[in-house]
Amino acid sequence: MKPPSPAVAAMPVLVVEGLERAFGGVRAVDGVSFTVASGERVALIGPNGAGKTTCFNLIDGQLTPDEGRVTIGGTDVTARPTRERARRGVGRTFQVAASFASMTVRENVALAIAAHEGATASPVGAGLGAYDARADALLARVGAAELAGEHAAILAYGDLKRVELALALAGEPRLLLMDEPTAGMAPRERGAMMDVVSALVRERSIALLFTEHDMDVVFAHADRIVVLDRGRILARGAPDAIRADRRVQEAYLGTDDDTPTDR
């Protein structure tokens, strides 16, 4: 293992140690360790089936690892459910964007803010209108102000991705997990989306872990890159070092005409 960078040693928001998870006979994630510090943007890349989404699901608690540990903000959360990790400051966007289909975009975000503040238990209280203004502000911050009144079920996919970012931000996350944040977006939209994300990471000292198939996005927006291949870490380091790494080129980047795409 390479020595961690000073920033990571100082302030690791996410620590993943020896993570293993098998499905049937397939070891989807096989001994993965890395850290993400606050204000740091780490890209998790690798070919299809490398274990990226499984890693995400292990980190946010949708899956429990067979072996290994997940520590968030110094607390071991390996056995804790997703909702508890969310309360500890984990925000997430999904590979296949997920929103609340029966609500408007504003109501989506208002619910996420209310959930973060523990204000969703009352079966008799008034609705969530009190959160509308904050929801609108958050939507404006991700460049989706004009979507506030739209029905979430009929959004264009790129718009949905931005709404998802707002949903993830509603919990004031320390750690933001973004599974393919720009999938389904037009090339120009992608840059704009990642610019917003990068700015937020700086402003709010968020630790960002994201997967992405668009290598331009990865090299432009990652401070560090972790390369997964068949469940194992193949390489890790700064974008330039990864770009130059022969093993990575062979396993993944090598053939330009065979650019990996996701389902």
Binding site: T82, R83, A86, F100, M103, A112, A115, P123
Partner: peptide, 28 residues
């Protein structure tokens, strides 16, 4: 009132997307 309450809204959220609901901290 229950359907329109914060609880009702959260309940509907859990129905619409259980994964999203859990990830914003709701106990589905």
């Amino acid at each position: 009132r229950i359907a329109a309450s914060p609880f009702g809204r959260a309940l509907r959220g859990a129905r619409d997307s259980a994964a999203r609901a859990e990830s914003i901290g709701l106990d589905v």
